[in-house]
């Protein structure tokens, strides 16, 4: 696979666009024609077509450089999007090692890692980085290890400390979030940071998910897909900047909904970290416009049925209740009532 990187913006003129190949490999999150919460974990190993987003441990796609540029802008405006409580320093090094080794193995044409004891050399060719540093020595990096590596890796990253039979959101690089604040949630446990989610707690979802996550083992990562809806291809839908993107949510019309309404999918994965015993929690965001999604007939049919039948409280929580009639009306044009095949991949 030869990647060519786009130069597009997730803000201002919203020049972001998916290539045909990116649309085909979009991680469509619905494996059936309806949706309800579930503990939808599966092993994070290669799956799907050859170019699927599940083929490599940390997927690198055509938006890599654009996403890293967007992250840099967000961090410049609000440095608190990247925070680490003091006891998470070791977990940050764990994460750096995990990502560097995985990327160098999975994308040898893009990344290289040379290790001589604690003396490491990291080469990131797309970003033009060639750095030498001493592993576990913070002073040899320009910033903390978590910040250093996540400025070079697509997706948000939370680092969870494990203690007292719970997981604690004690560090993170969060610049492409679906409306939650790291600065507010840092230090919370698993139940606390999920507190605003309707219905799922009563369904026992969080108890079961936590039990699973506490037992994730080294070398056996897991993953799940989560989703929401975003107007315009905007990564930074944080509560902090809600006054900037809130008005855009009310700008949809029957004429522009296909172009400006995006399905936002999070590929979440969970990795036990070897030294800290923490859990790395990457939250990788993929965006796809409705007009692009419906070019896959199965997805057009299915998304129409899922969004049409979704309980109102979930639509409200996911922030698109106000636009649901427009969206469903648009999608109905692509649903001829034909049956759909099981699973998420295109036919």
């Amino acid at each position: 696979m030869t990647l060519s990187f786009s130069q597009s913006r997730f803000r201002d003129d919203y020049s972001f666009a998916n290539s045909d190949a990116a649309i085909r490999r979009f991680p469509f999150p619905f494996d059936r024609d309806s949706y309800m919460y579930s503990v939808n974990m599966e092993p994070h190993r290669a799956a799907g077509p050859e170019d699927s987003v599940f083929q490599r441990r940390f997927d690198v796609d055509e938006h890599y450089l654009s996403e890293m540029a967007d992250r840099a802008i967000t961090l410049q405006r609000d440095p608190m999007r990247c925070q680490s409580l003091p006891h998470m320093r070791l977990a940050g090094w764990d994460l750096l090692e995990l990502i560097m080794t995985a990327k160098a193995e999975d994308y040898p044409d893009l990344f290289a890692l040379q290790r001589d004891g604690a003396c490491w050399r990291w080469i990131n060719r797309p970003m033009g980085i060639d750095d030498r540093f001493t592993f576990l020595d913070d002073a040899t990096l320009p910033c903390g290890p978590m910040e250093y590596i996540t400025r070079q890796t697509q997706g948000d990253f939370a680092l969870l400390d494990q203690r007292q039979g719970n997981l604690w959101m004690d560090a993170g690089m969060i610049t492409s979030q679906a409306d939650w604040s790291l600065d507010f949630d840092i230090g919370m446990n698993f139940f606390e940071w999920h507190a605003p989610v309707p219905r799922a707690a009563q369904m026992g979802i969080f108890q079961r998910a936590l039990k699973f996550l506490l037992n994730v083992q080294q070398g056996a990562p897991s993953r799940r897909l989560n989703w929401t809806m975003t107007v315009n291809p905007r990564l930074d839908t944080s509560p902090e900047t809600y006054p900037e993107w809130g008005p855009e949510k009310r700008s949809l019309t029957p004429e522009n909904v296909g172009q400006r309404q995006f399905l936002r999918v999070e590929l979440q994965s969970f990795w036990r970290l070897p030294r800290s015993n923490g859990l790395a929690f990457p939250i990788r965001c993929y965006l796809c416009a409705l007009e692009d999604l419906v070019t896959v007939p199965k997805w057009g049919r299915r998304l129409h049925r899922v969004l049409r039948d979704l309980p109102e409280d979930l639509a409200t929580y996911k922030g698109f209740a106000v636009n649901r009639p427009l969206i469903v009306d648009y999608l109905s044009r692509f649903d001829d009532g034909a049956p759909t095949s099981p699973g998420i991949f295109p036919d």
Partner: peptide, 27 residues
Amino acid sequence: GRWLYVRDHFSRRLGAFQGVCIDAETP
């Protein structure tokens, strides 16, 4: 100076509840 709605979400670390702009979508 923004008008904020009062969320029930609470941070022990900050000792505070969260206030979020109530008219962000409809200034």
